[in-house]
Amino acid sequence: MTTDTTGAGRATGRGRRPRRSHGSSIMLTSGLAIALAVVLVPFYWLVIASTHSSQEIFGSPPPLLPGGHLAKNLSTLQETASFGRVVLNSLGIAALYTLCAGTVCTLAGYAFAKYRFKGRDPLFGLLMLGLVIPAQVTLVPLFKLMAELEWLNTYQAVIMPNLALPFGIFLMRQSMAVLPDELLDSGRMDGCGELRLFVEVVLPPMKPALAALGIFLFLYQWNDFVWPLIVLRDGASYTIPVALASLQGVDDTDYGAILTGTAVAAIPMAIVFLALQRHFVSGLLAGAVKE
């Protein structure tokens, strides 16, 4: 008489797997909880500190609950830096830059991905050098160019120099490279012009990549500090990073007001990311496709 141990072995195997899976799930959840805490604690402290005065912020122990200086900090920001206008400046510049740079990068990426022209690959390689050249190298020639154009202390001086952003072009080129050429040829055979083909055939599948590009461009311009600091001379035209830097004094600095401004500056970034987050990861993965 033989004993069938196969079923028992399978049952035993089935019985052990949930234990390993449960343990792995606990470890994964714990790791994610720790990572979430590491990310959120600085933001929590930023919000809490923005409601306190400088003396309370540097007190011992540091504040962990909301205080009563938020209105005072906002009033100080408005009085010393016209912060309401500064926020509007940053929103307008970042939105306009995202629209213009997104259009340039999308069109350039489409041209590099789907058109064959002489010197295309060397030109793309030259463009990619912009990813390894430090931005500080271009500050002096760009400043001279803005001065010759009489664009200093204007918004176009902030927006125009970085419209053809190498990373944006690279992202869109890699995303559009996966579009089947047969789809484009079919559209041309149906009588689509190049502009209509681009708008109605190419752009709809590119929504994830466009969302990723939009987030990157908006945050890039919103957080830019060095270039606006160089070309903007009037406090009324400052962006948020420049205005907050101007609040730092030699002898006295109101850190409560600065942290309040920083907390306010984080709100639009969070809104943009949350609005487009569903497409963000898939857009970046689409840009990672290798030909």
Score class of each variant (00 low, 15 high):
240 I>L: 06
162 N>I: 01
129 L>R: 02
233 R>M: 10
193 G>N: 10
38 V>L: 15
270 A>I: 12
37 A>Q: 11
192 C>G: 03
216 F>S: 11
55 Q>N: 14
48 I>K: 03
205 P>V: 03
34 I>T: 15
151 W>N: 02
250 V>E: 14
144 K>C: 00
187 G>M: 04
75 S>G: 14
270 A>P: 06
72 K>N: 14
140 V>H: 01
38 V>P: 14
242 V>S: 11
131 L>I: 01
278 R>L: 10
144 K>F: 08
111 A>C: 10
28 L>K: 13
152 L>Y: 02
185 D>L: 07
289 V>E: 04
136 Q>W: 05
115 Y>N: 05
70 L>I: 01
37 A>F: 15
11 A>C: 07
72 K>A: 15
264 V>L: 10
19 R>C: 06
268 P>F: 13
263 A>R: 12
247 L>Y: 09
226 V>E: 07
141 P>D: 03
270 A>R: 03
255 Y>C: 05
94 A>K: 07
54 S>W: 11
225 F>L: 07
189 M>L: 11
33 A>Y: 13
82 S>E: 03
181 D>E: 02
17 R>H: 05
106 T>Q: 03
160 M>R: 04
91 L>P: 02
215 I>R: 08
69 H>N: 12
89 N>W: 03
36 L>C: 15
121 D>L: 01
56 E>P: 08
127 L>N: 01
255 Y>K: 07
21 S>K: 13
85 R>G: 12
139 L>I: 03
200 E>I: 00
159 I>F: 00
215 I>Q: 09
281 V>L: 15
160 M>S: 06
188 R>H: 09
15 G>Q: 05
65 L>N: 09
217 L>K: 09
34 I>M: 14
247 L>E: 06
136 Q>N: 07
95 A>H: 02
42 P>A: 04
187 G>R: 04
157 A>Y: 02
35 A>W: 15
258 I>P: 03
174 Q>M: 04
113 A>Q: 09
233 R>G: 05
46 L>V: 01
231 V>R: 08
83 F>V: 04
43 F>H: 12
152 L>H: 02
155 Y>F: 05
247 L>I: 08
284 L>M: 13
234 D>M: 01
70 L>G: 05
120 R>L: 00
68 G>E: 12
268 P>L: 10
7 G>K: 13
121 D>R: 05
104 V>I: 13
183 L>H: 05
16 R>G: 06
31 G>Y: 12
276 L>D: 11
228 P>D: 11
251 D>Q: 15
236 A>I: 03
15 G>T: 07
209 A>V: 00
22 H>F: 12
216 F>G: 10
108 A>T: 06
273 F>P: 10
148 E>G: 09
25 S>C: 10
219 L>R: 04
170 F>R: 08
67 G>S: 03
55 Q>P: 01
177 A>E: 06
223 N>I: 00
142 L>V: 00
279 H>G: 14
227 W>L: 04
127 L>V: 00
256 G>Y: 15
126 L>M: 04
74 L>R: 01
104 V>D: 11
92 G>N: 04
64 L>R: 09
8 A>T: 07
155 Y>I: 00
125 G>H: 09
64 L>Q: 07
156 Q>C: 00
121 D>T: 03
83 F>L: 02
189 M>A: 10
41 V>E: 15
